[in-house]
């Protein structure tokens, strides 16, 4: 686009303001995590009076953060792997086959996005408890139950994004594989997936982030042993006091893995989204 002379100035001002807005909480999170407790209890300070890494040591003792962390890694990791696998097959079917119910499936899956989580929270909770009573398979209060729940949260968007990605792969590739005698599953794994790898990675990142950040179901479906980070982080406030420096340190610790992963893969994410959105 050719630019008028005033545009660079507008750009500098507007983008700077947006950058300040974006950065403010991140700045506070990082600097406060390095402050001693008295700095976060009194009036706000832009800079720590003395730098300390104590909060990063204390967070592991104030609450059993290590256990929550392990739980979150297991739950989010398992949910991601399952969700991506299921989404790959579903997206392949929608992208490569014309069958009765194809459109219905797409609409139905996307429409689950509009369900208010609160509507199926309690019935799901009851189903999990009953399945547990009937079969001995513990879903309530276990990581398995959370994995099953979370993987369906990311499923609709993952399928949608992957369909867009698969649609962009020329059918000639499938056909030449089929001429070589490959069935649908082999075609999918040998031809489609390697080509669509960036899209698959984008979907995996999305699924992981969804599971890692969910609060509502984590607050109801977990017990002491299966508690995950979103609920664990509330343990730093007692009745009298909130250890804000530790809260900020813990927030930083739980954010770094996902933010790093997302930012490292953001290029794939953008292209995956483009493929899904522009249809």
């Amino acid at each position: 686009m050719r630019e008028p002379a005033w545009l660079p100035w507008v750009r500098r001002v507007v983008l700077s303001l947006l950058a300040v807005f974006t950065l403010a909480p991140i700045y506070v999170m990082i600097t406060s995590a390095l402050k001693p407790l008295r700095d976060v209890q009194g009036p706000f300070r832009w800079w720590p009076s003395t730098f300390t890494v104590r909060p990063f040591v204390d967070i592991w003792h104030t609450v059993p953060l290590g256990r929550y962390f392990v739980n979150s890694v297991i739950v989010s990791g398992a949910a991601t792997i399952c969700s991506v696998t299921v989404a790959i097959f579903a997206a392949y079917a929608v992208s490569r086959y014309r069958f009765p119910g194809r459109r219905l499936f797409s609409v139905a899956v996307l429409s689950t996005q509009m369900f208010p989580g609160i509507l199926f929270l309690l019935p799901l909770f009851l189903i999990f408890v009953n399945v547990g009573n009937l079969t001995g398979l513990e879903l309530y209060g276990s990581r398995t139950g959370l994995v099953i729940t979370y993987l369906t949260f990311s499923l609709p968007f993952s399928i949608w994004m992957l369909v867009g990605y698969f649609d962009g792969i020329p059918r000639g590739l499938d056909e030449s594989a089929q001429v070589d005698g490959a069935g649908p599953v082999r075609t999918l794994f040998r031809v489609i997936l390697p080509t669509a790898l960036p899209g698959v990675i984008a979907v995996a990142v999305y699924a992981f982030m969804t599971a890692w950040g969910e609060v509502l179901f984590a607050s109801v479906m977990t017990d002491d042993t299966s508690r995950t980070l979103p609920i664990g982080l509330q343990g730093y406030s007692t009745e009298h006091d909130v250890y804000w420096n530790q809260v900020m340190a813990a927030s930083l610790v739980v954010s770094v893995p996902v933010v790093a992963g997302f930012l490292a893969l953001q290029r794939h994410f953008v292209s995956g989204l483009t493929a899904g959105a522009v249809k």
């Binding site: 947006l18 950058a19 974006t22 950065l23 403010a24 909480p25 991140i26 506070v28 999170m29 406060s32 976060v40 209890q41 009194g42 009036p43 706000f44 982030m209 890692w212 950040g213 969910e214 609060v215 980070l229 979103p230 982080l233 804000w244 809260v247 900020m248 927030s251 930083l252 739980v254 954010s255 996902v258 933010v259 997302f262 930012l263 953001q266």
Partner: peptide, 26 residues
């Protein structure tokens, strides 16, 4: 990259940070 960071942050970590920013006294 900077603009995308809030999207990548886990909800509860970001929102808990905001609740610190919005404290009346501190």
């Amino acid at each position: 990259t900077l603009f995308l960071t809030p999207y990548a942050l886990p909800t509860y970590a970001a929102v808990i940070t905001w609740s610190f920013l919005l404290q009346r006294d501190a």
